[in-house]
């Protein structure tokens, strides 16, 4: 049986007068990595923000772990076990690595091993060496790792990961892909928005393609890689 952790139907959202999402339907199974793909402006980030409550959905339902969360404040959604890693990293540059992790800290649900800074440092060895460094003094790649680690400190069940490869040098992108795969190994469900097919193919089981605010295609990553017509229609050159 497929156990669904996130179930979005008919989600509409936008900014001010502009509408971006025109009824997005998607599901995420427990422990699955799904890639939310599509051109820029297709509504990938907007979808994640609307699920997280950072944008108030105008219509539709968002069920997380069986509970309706559309219209809830972001902090309540986070407390239910949905983590969010923003596109622009948004680490707290004035705070040390440890303090950044402290902001994200929330108790683990019963029966699950909680993330601790030590466990995360094993996960991201780079961070271990700079635990008392001001986050603003770290490189872009290190900051991206910190922002994922910070979200994991909240012991989420599922994570929305917005464009983790954006703006990073290819070498760092490979480390990011590795991190996502290890999150999957830990049993986390991950919905990752991504434009780069190489990255999506490296981490995801399944892809959903957004275009003009709706999901136009979904299926196996392998199918997508094999099918040039779909790629040409919805993704790249």
């Amino acid at each position: 049986m497929v156990d669904t952790v996130l179930d979005v139907t008919g989600l509409r959202a936008g900014y001010g007068p502009a509408e971006v999402l025109f009824g997005v339907d998607l599901t995420l199974a427990r422990g699955e990595v799904a890639a939310l793909m599509g051109r820029n402006g297709a509504g990938k980030s907007t979808t994640l923000k609307a699920i997280m409550g950072l944008l108030t959905p105008r219509a539709g339902t968002v069920r997380f772990a069986g509970q309706e969360i559309a219209g809830m404040a972001p902090y309540r959604i986070a407390r239910l076990g949905l983590g969010y890693v923003p596109e622009e990293r948004r680490i707290f540059t004035d705070l040390t690595v440890m303090e950044n992790l402290a902001v994200g800290r929330r108790a683990a649900p019963p029966g699950r091993e909680a993330w601790t800074p030590e466990r995360l440092f094993a996960f991201f060895p780079n961070l271990a060496e700079m635990r008392h460094r001001r986050a603003g003094a770290m490189s872009g790649g290190e900051q991206q790792m910190l922002t994922i680690a910070r979200t994991l400190m909240g012991n989420p069940e599922a994570v929305l990961l917005d464009e983790p490869s954006e703006g990073l040098a290819p070498v760092i992108v490979e480390q990011m892909a590795d991190a996502v795969l290890r999150m999957k190994d830990e049993g986390l469900a991950v919905l990752v928005s991504e434009q780069n097919l190489d990255f999506a193919a490296a981490v995801a089981d399944r892809a959903l393609i957004l275009e003009k605010g709706t999901v136009r295609w979904q299926g196996d990553i392998a199918t997508l890689e094999a099918d040039e017509d779909i790629r040409r229609a919805y993704l790249t050159v």
């Binding site: 972001p74 902090y75 540059t93 909240g154």
Partner: peptide, 18 residues
């Protein structure tokens, strides 16, 4: 620590469950 974090980015603090 939360005050300092929020001084920098309130929305993100909220998205982390605060």
């Amino acid at each position: 620590v939360l005050i300092r974090a929020a001084t920098q980015d309130r929305e993100m603090v909220g998205a982390l469950g605060v």
